[in-house]
Design a protein around this nucleic acid. Structure first.
Lengths: 185, 185
DNA sequence: TTATTATTGTTTCGACTCGAAACTATAAGG
DNA sequence: CCTTATAGTTTCGAGTCGAAACAATAATAA
């Protein structure tokens, strides 16, 4: 019983350990660390409500001080730019630069996974998705889901969406991004 | 197609990120780091051919210098002891102390996972196992499997085993441990 | 309005991680 | 016997991370 839990935990840690080592090696030529890449990757997939240092902090589960340093490195390397929020002067928005997007495009996919039969990965998808969802529900950590599946999102017409939380209309594409305010229906 | 790969990779990294953060917090009271725990955990589950610093190095995928420091910390904290090999004077064997085993017993299982429905985890087991196996095959990294499933292992009689590689008999229990020389049948 | 409190984000510090390279000691092979 | 390979340690420099102090702005209460 508990043994099963341990086995799955073992597999998860082992697989991700291998992926992490692989990524570390690949990123070395860019002078990037795994955690910096994770932040960059998040910023590429989050919406305009969720591209702030605080959102990254929540996503990575680290302290804001730590994240602040991570972001400083990314900015110094010219992979992201910081833009002040127009309404709340405390808040910054972080956008990927061309260079940032390029690194992401080339490094996003693990070569180790890419060379496997896709069936192997497909078999993992749904069980892992269920697992993550349950973990987030059980720990009231923010799920960071896609707008489109959020209970604050309503489809006005075909391809036209509205976020009830911000009262702002959303583009079709925007609703596929990750949002820190995401809540399940 | 590639999108599927990315999704699974995303889920793996997200789940393990949560587990890693959880573990970091839990280990803080012992003054242990995640990587130190991983080494300790490995040493608790490997056999007597695989409890050396070099084996830990291969398992963790780091450099021997890095691992040497990790092990030094564990030894200083009294969680492991170093024993010289009787035949090869270059080699050390690392054994868990009482204190080391205790920490492992209390910290091994993730509370976050333990509170979930076990069905959720069971659904993940086989797909993940297949994934890991394929990854190891594709990357000639050592699989670190159980003796009992190794092609060098033969069952002489019920509960009596022999390793053809070392020509040594193995106890029933030993064949359930991880071995660095493991090869698939 | 004004004072208090909360929130966002940065900076600094100290302990720890990690790879690279130099180094020691022992083993193996020609 | 000499050379090469292997196991392991040490040192160094760049980076990670949390804690705590700090500044600036926003929200709330009196």
């Amino acid at each position: 019983m508990n043994q099963d839990i341990y086995q799955v935990q073992f597999l998860l840690e082992r697989i991700t350990g291998l992926l992490r080592n692989e990524r570390r090696q690949l990123l070395a030529e860019y002078g990037l660390q795994p955690v910096q890449f994770e932040a960059l990757n998040y910023l590429a997939h989050c919406n305009r409500y969720s591209d702030t240092p605080m959102a990254v902090t929540e996503y990575l589960g680290q302290t804001k001080g730590t994240v602040s340093q991570t972001l400083k490195v990314l900015e110094t390397k010219g992979l992201i730019v910081k833009q002040g929020d127009s309404k709340d002067k405390r808040v910054s928005h972080l956008k990927l630069t061309e260079a940032g997007s390029e690194i992401l495009d080339t490094q996003q996919l693990s070569p180790q996974l890419a060379q496997l039969e896709s069936q192997l990965l497909n078999d993992c998808y749904q069980p892992l998705q269920n697992l993550l969802t349950s973990m987030q529900q059980a720990n009231q950590s923010r799920p960071f889901g896609q707008c489109r599946q959020c209970r604050h999102n309503t489809e006005l017409a075909q391809g036209q969406y509205l976020c009830e939380l911000t009262k702002e209309p959303l583009q079709e594409q925007e609703t596929l991004l990750l949002c820190r305010e995401f809540e399940r229906p």
